[in-house]
C-alpha cells in the first residue's frame, strides 16, 4: 500500500504540469513570483490546482450514481417514491450551493460532536473540508444529474425495454446492457455541462478552508499584494480546465456517436 501511494506521489510530481520536471512554472517562471519551491507561489498554486481537480473527480462518480438512482425513483410507478425524489431535487436545486455547503459543513460538525458527546468525548471536532465539499457538491450534482438523466430516459423508447424482456433478460440486465449505454449517449452533452458547473462550484469550497486554486491564489494575493495578477491566474487556470473539459467531451461525444448511421 505504501509502495503504491509512493509511486502515485512520484507519478503526480513527474507529470505535474506546473512544477514537475516539464512544468510551466519550472521553465518559465523561475525567479518570479510563480517560481516553484520556497522562492515563489508556483508549487502552492500547483497543489491547489491538483486539489480542485481531485475534488471534482472524487465528487463525480458519487454524484452520478446517486443522481442515476434519483432519476430511477422519479420514473417509478410508485407515487411515494416519485414524491420523495421530487422533494430531493426541489430542495437541492433551490438552495444556493454555498448555503448547502455551510449546512453540510456545520451540520456534520454538530452531528459528529453530539455523537462523540454521547460516547463521552468532549474535545473539539473538525470536519475535513474535502469531505464536506464532496458531500455538498455531490448532493447538488446528483440533483441536477437526475434531471438530465430523467429527460434522457424519456428519449429511450419503451420498445427497448420490451425487447430486452422478450429476450429473457432480467430487469437489471436490460437496464445495464440495453438501456444504460443508450442513456449515457443521450445524456452526455447535459452531463458535460454539469461537469463544468461542478468544476466551477469547487471554488466555493475554498470558503470553508480547502486549499484549492482560489484559496491558494487568495493567500498569495494577500501576502504579495498583487491581487489582480493572482486572481487573473486563478481565472486562467479555470479556463484551462474548461478547455480541457470541452476537448474531452467532444471526444467522448464523437466516440459515443461512432455507431450511429451517417446522415
Amino acid at each position: 500500500m505504501d509502495a503504491i501511494t509512493a509511486a502515485l506521489e512520484r507519478l503526480t510530481t513527474l507529470l505535474d504540469p506546473f512544477c514537475g520536471p516539464a512544468g510551466v512554472f519550472t521553465w518559465f517562471a523561475g525567479g518570479s513570483l510563480l517560481a516553484c519551491g520556497d522562492a515563489g507561489w508556483g508549487d502552492e498554486i500547483a497543489s491547489g490546482f491538483k486539489i480542485t481537480v481531485f475534488l471534482a473527480l472524487a465528487t463525480l462518480p458519487f454524484g452520478l450514481v446517486f443522481g442515476f438512482f434519483v432519476a430511477l425513483a422519479k420514473r417509478s410507478q410508485e407515487p411515494s417514491l416519485r414524491r420523495a425524489a421530487n422533494i430531493y431535487t426541489t430542495l437541492f436545486r433551490g438552495l444556493p450551493e454555498l448555503l448547502t455547503l455551510f449546512i453540510v459543513y456545520y451540520g456534520l460538525q454538530i452531528m459528529v460532536q453530539r455523537f462523540l458527546g454521547t460516547l463521552g468525548y468532549q474535545g473539539p471536532v473538525e470536519i475535513n473540508a474535502f469531505a464536506a465539499g464532496m458531500v455538498a457538491l455531490g448532493v447538488v450534482f446528483a440533483a441536477y444529474a437526475s434531471e438530465v438523466l430523467e429527460s434522457a430516459f424519456n428519449a429511450i423508447p419503451l420498445g427497448q425495454y420490451e425487447a430486452g424482456y422478450a429476450l429473457g433478460l432480467s430487469r437489471g440486465r436490460t437496464m445495464r446492457l440495453i438501456v444504460l449505454p443508450q442513456l449515457l449517449r443521450v445524456a452526455l452533452p447535459g452531463l458535460g455541462n454539469l461537469w463544468m458547473e461542478l468544476l466551477k462550484n469547487t471554488a466555493l469550497v475554498s470558503v470553508i478552508g480547502l486549499p484549492d486554486i482560489l484559496r491558494q491564489t487568495g493567500i498569495a494575493a494577500r501576502v504579495t499584494k498583487r491581487a489582480f495578477e493572482f486572481f487573473s491566474l486563478a481565472c486562467l487556470l479555470f479556463i484551462i480546465l474548461a478547455l480541457a473539459t470541452s476537448l474531452v467531451f467532444s471526444y467522448l461525444e464523437r466516440r459515443a456517436r461512432r455507431s450511429e448511421a451517417m446522415r
Partner: peptide, 8 residues
C-alpha cells in the same frame, strides 16, 4: 462562462 463567479 468558464470561470467561477466567485473568482470573478
Amino acid at each position: 462562462r468558464g470561470t467561477p463567479i466567485i473568482a470573478q
